[in-house]
Design a protein around this nucleic acid. Structure first.
Lengths: 266, 266
DNA sequence: CACTTATGTCCGATATACTGTACACCTTGC
DNA sequence: GCAAGGTGTACAGTATATCGGACATAAGTG
C-alpha cells in the first residue's frame, strides 16, 4: 500500500481563506479524518497540516491526541500516520448494529464467489453515493472499486434505487445540479433521471451502461429495511461488453439473493 | 439489537471528580466514542452526558457536531444516537490498509464455515486483548464473542502469542498486575504466564482451557507480519468438553491455514 | 391536578485551546 | 561550510469553546 489510490489532486480541504481562521479542535479532527479518508494512504503530519489548512502546531497537538486514543496509528518509521484500531472497532460497531449485516456480507461474498465478478455493497452518505464494501473480480481484468469514495448519485445504477423512497420534488431538492454532469461532460436531464428512479421502483432493480465511465455495466438490486425503504443495495460491476445472456443470468442471481435479505428490520 | 451486551455496569467513565472540570472538545469526543463502544447500543444524549460526566449543554453541542459529520447517527425516533456511516468508512480504511486483510478475513470465514465452530480474529489494543472480528458457531449452543471488548491479555490463549515478540522484562512492564487475576478469582503466577509465552513462541500456537471462563477451550495461531512479529491471531473458541481428537483436528486446520497468511508484509 | 424528571435550546462569563512564533535538531544540496 | 527545508517541541496571548444555569416543552406518576 505505497501508492495513493488516485492521481494525487492535492487540493486543500479548508484553505479557501488562506488567512488564519481559528477553528475548534473537533472541527479540525473531522476535517483531518475526512482528508485521510480521501487520501487513502498514511500521511505525515506536516502534509496533513498543509492539506487541511491548519497550523502545524495545532496539527501536531491533535494528531498526538488521536494517536493516544488509537484513532490514529503511526505507520512505518518516518512519521506517517493513518487510521488506528479504535476506528476499526467503531466502524464494526456501526455495521453490526444492524443485526442482519453479517448475512448481507455473506451474500456479497457468495455473489462475488459464484459469479467471479466484482460485487459491491452500496449506500448513501449525505447526498452522495458511496461503496460500503466490495469483493473484487477474480478475473485478469479487474474492475476494482474504491470503498468510501463519494460519487454523485446520478452516476450510478444503485443511486437510482437509493432514491426510490423520495418524491420527485424531494429528489430535485436533494441532488445538487452539478451532480447530473457525468465525468465525460454529458449531462443527464433531470426528467430522465426522475424517470429512471420511477422505473427502478417499478422493476425492483436498476441497470446502467457506461454511465460513470465507458467500461462498466452495472446491475443493482435493493435491500429493503423494516419500513420498506431502500437504504442499501447490492450490485455487480461488469465489463461493458458482457454478453446479454450472461447479464440476464447475473441479474437473476443478484435479484434473487438480494430479495432474500428483504423484510428485515433495521 | 435491543439488549446491552453485558449486564449494564453503569460506571461513569470520567466522573472520578464529580466537580466540574473543564475539558476540551477533542477529549470529550474520544471519551464519548469509547463510552458508546462499551455500551454497544444507541444511547440518548442525556444518558451519554451522565455516563461520560460532561455537562448536558456541552454534550448536545458535541453530539450535534458529530451527527453533522456522520460520525454519529440518530437511531429510532426518540433521540438515540450511535456510530454513523463515516465510522464504517474510517474503519474499513484502517483494516484494508493492510493489503492482505481480505485474505485474512477470507481465512476466518473458511475456518468458521468448514468447522462450524466459533472463530475469531484477535489483536491488541494498548495493553489489552480485543477481538477484531468473529464468525459465530452455527451450532445450537453458540459461544458468541464480543468484538471490541477489551480483555486482560493473560485471560486468553491469543494473548500469549501476541506477546511472543517481547522479552520477559518487557512483558512484566507491559501487563498490569491486576490483569493476572482471572474472573473467578484465581491468579496466574507471572512466571507461569512468561513460561506460557515462551511455550507459545516455541510451538507456534497457543492453547488454553477454562481460562477466562469455565466453558471454553481456546486454540490460537499467529499471523506474522513482515518483520516476523505477531500482531494478529486467529483462534477457535470451543466448548470445553470438545473431544481431544476433534481438538487436534481443528488445531491442525487452524495452524495450516493461518501459516499460509505468514510472510506477508504489513 | 400538582409534582417530578426528562429533552432540547439559548446565553453570558471566563478558563483555556488554539495559534503564531521561536527554537533545536536533522537531512539534503551545492 | 552554509543555506534551505524538513521535523518535533515549547510557550505566551487572546479569541472563543466550554460551562452552568435558565427556559419552554413534554412525558410519566400518584
Amino acid at each position: 500500500m505505497t501508492e495513493t489510490a488516485y492521481p494525487n489532486e492535492a487540493r486543500q480541504e479548508a484553505a479557501t481563506s488562506a488567512g488564519g481562521e481559528r477553528k475548534r479542535g473537533i472541527d479540525r479532527v473531522i476535517i483531518l479524518l475526512e482528508a485521510l479518508l480521501r487520501q487513502r494512504a498514511p500521511m505525515r503530519v506536516g502534509d496533513i497540516a498543509r492539506l487541511i489548512g491548519a497550523p502545524r502546531s495545532t496539527t501536531y497537538e491533535i494528531v498526538n491526541r488521536l494517536l493516544e486514543a488509537d484513532m490514529l496509528e503511526t505507520v512505518g518509521a518516518d512519521g506517517h500516520v493513518y487510521f488506528g484500531r479504535a476506528m476499526h472497532l467503531f466502524g464494526w460497531a456501526y455495521s453490526h448494529h444492524n443485526a442482519h449485516y453479517p448475512r448481507i456480507v455473506e451474500t456479497l461474498d457468495r455473489l462475488a464467489a459464484d459469479s467471479g465478478e466484482t460485487a459491491q455493497l452500496c449506500g448513501l452518505r449525505g447526498n452522495k453515493y458511496v461503496v460500503l464494501d466490495c469483493r473484487d473480480s477474480t478475473g485478469p481484468f479487474r474492475i476494482s472499486s474504491q470503498v468510501g469514495v463519494e460519487v454523485p448519485i446520478p452516476w450510478t445504477a444503485s443511486g437510482r434505487l437509493l432514491l426510490t423512497h423520495m418524491s420527485d420534488e424531494a429528489v430535485r431538492a436533494f441532488v445538487p445540479a452539478e451532480d447530473y454532469r457525468l465525468p465525460d461532460g454529458r449531462v443527464i436531464p433531470q426528467e430522465e433521471f426522475l424517470a429512471d428512479i420511477a422505473l427502478a421502483r417499478r422493476q425492483g432493480y436498476s441497470e446502467s451502461a457506461a454511465l460513470a465511465d465507458r467500461f462498466t455495466w452495472c446491475l443493482a438490486a435493493p435491500i429493503r429495511d423494516g419500513r420498506g425503504s431502500v437504504t442499501l443495495t447490492l450490485c455487480f460491476v461488469l465489463p461493458v461488453d458482457t454478453p446479454e445472456p450472461r447479464r440476464i443470468e447475473l441479474l437473476a442471481m443478484l435479484r434473487e439473493r438480494t430479495a432474500s435479505l428483504d423484510l428485515m428490520g433495521e
